[in-house]
């Protein structure tokens, strides 16, 4: 998670209007889910990969590696769809007889599974594009402009900011315990971890108190109002996002006629 965030700050697309990136990612995500077609999903995957790697400058190896993250979960999910049970062994390409029924893999099942596999991958690639090109801060700004409830956006911002502080504190404490042999055996490890968790909780509580004091000292009155840096808003960006998706929709509508419904 932390790594993705670092890459977002390094991306060449960081300076692009976050609203535009959000629109592009969500529209494409929507189209990918709606089209429910292997060809469109693969297309989306390539478009997002191209934009992220070639326009954003994210290392291609990183993008590939990130795509592998949902893989294990995806493969298991897809297998359960590909494998079916039926009384009629004729529908299966390959089947075994067990527990009074035929369990096997049918052509339709494989088709379904492959379609789902690419659909999920395409959808994930849309989100990777967004998170690899847009730092959280910019994304929160876009949400604020979209009139997402203030409380929610503020909460997201604070959580995001203090996750790093919390991790750092936990890490320091863990190192300090480890250097005093706190994790030398299983039982002492459990004890140390328990102590770490409870201390971390107390620290976090204390810190929130101190944060509140510091905010109050700067005139906090219940709302975290800040000024954002302006982005160059270009309508061409929005137009491109819409056009690409119109093309995708068109392709999705024409695809069954061109490929005979296979893809």
């Amino acid at each position: 998670m932390i790594n993705i965030d670092n890459y977002a700050y390094l991306s060449k697309l960081k300076k692009t209007d976050p609203m535009q990136k959000l629109l592009f990612a969500l529209l494409t995500l929507g189209v990918c889910l709606w089209a429910n077609s292997i060809a469109i999903s693969v297309l989306v995957l390539f478009i997002m990969g191209w934009v992220t790697v070639c326009r954003g400058g994210t290392p291609p190896a990183l993008f590939m590696k990130l795509l592998l993250v949902p893989m294990s979960f995806l493969v298991i999910g897809v297998l359960t769809i590909a494998v079916n049970a039926s009384d009629n062994p004729g529908v299966f390409i390959f089947s075994v007889y067990a527990a009074g029924t035929h369990i096997g893999v049918s052509l339709a099942g494989i088709h379904n599974a492959v379609r789902l596999f690419f659909k999920a991958l395409g959808a994930v690639s849309c989100l990777y594009y967004l998170s690899l090109s847009t730092p959280m801060v910019d994304l929160l700004g876009a949400l604020r402009r979209l009139k997402v409830p203030k409380l929610l956006v503020e909460l997201m911002g604070l959580i995001y900011r203090f996750i790093f502080v919390l991790l750092e504190t936990a890490d320091t404490m863990h190192t300090a315990q480890d250097s005093r042999l706190g994790y030398s055996s299983l039982s002492s490890g459990y004890r140390s971890l328990g102590a770490l968790a409870s201390t971390l909780f107390i620290r976090a509580y204390k810190r929130s108190d101190e944060l509140y004091t510091a905010l109050e000292a700067r005139g906090y009155d219940g709302e975290l109002n800040v000024l954002e840096e302006p982005f160059n808003v270009r309508w061409t960006g929005y137009a491109a996002a819409v056009l690409v998706n119109l093309a995708l929709i068109l392709a999705a509508l024409l695809m069954p006629q061109l490929t005979g419904g296979l893809l």
């Binding site: 801060v137 911002g157 900011r161 905010l215 906090y220 800040v226 840096e229």
Partner: peptide
């Protein structure tokens, strides 16, 4: 104005620019 000892207790925003603007926006 008060500047506190631990800056991590004072900086609430992940953006430097936004954090600096907070007090002024409140004015």
């Amino acid at each position: 104005g008060i500047v506190f000892q631990d800056p991590d207790n004072q900086l609430f925003s992940a953006s430097v620019y936004q954090d600096i603007s907070f007090g002024v926006v409140n004015m």
